[in-house]
């Protein structure tokens, strides 16, 4: 994989890397991509499942489940103010 392409990808993923890391990671990403292209060679469409190959659509009825516990989820927030999650300012 081209280093410049890797740099764009790292930037999009919000990952900061040094030049050395780019060099070593480049080789590793290359391996992954090779593996993916190998997988693409297989005939996925003949498998019984996969997007668009189900007998019926899987949807759920439009109803409120009411089983969530929002307060316990908020406990994991780093900082709260009047139920708002507070984070450093980002533009």
């Amino acid at each position: 994989m081209d280093v410049s392409e890797l740099k764009v990808t790292a930037d999009l993923a919000n990952i900061e890397l040094g030049e050395e890391e780019f060099a070593s990671l480049g080789r590793e990403v290359e391996k992954m991509l090779d593996y993916f292209s190998k997988m693409m060679e297989t005939d996925g469409m003949s498998l019984p499942s996969g997007p668009g190959r189900r007998a019926a659509n899987r949807t759920r009825p439009d109803a409120v489940s009411g089983d969530a516990d929002p307060d316990s989820l908020l406990e994991n927030a780093p900082e709260l103010e009047d139920r708002f999650i507070v984070i450093p300012n980002v533009l």
């Binding site: 759920r60 109803a63 409120v64 489940s65 009411g66 089983d67 969530a68 929002p70 989820l73 908020l74 009047d82 139920r83 708002f84 999650i85």
Partner: peptide
């Protein structure tokens, strides 16, 4: 994509789930 209430104007972070 989840069973949370879809409503405008509720208290912040009340209609949330994992």
């Amino acid at each position: 994509f989840c069973g949370c209430t879809n409503r405008f104007g509720d208290e912040p972070n009340t209609n949330v789930c994992p």
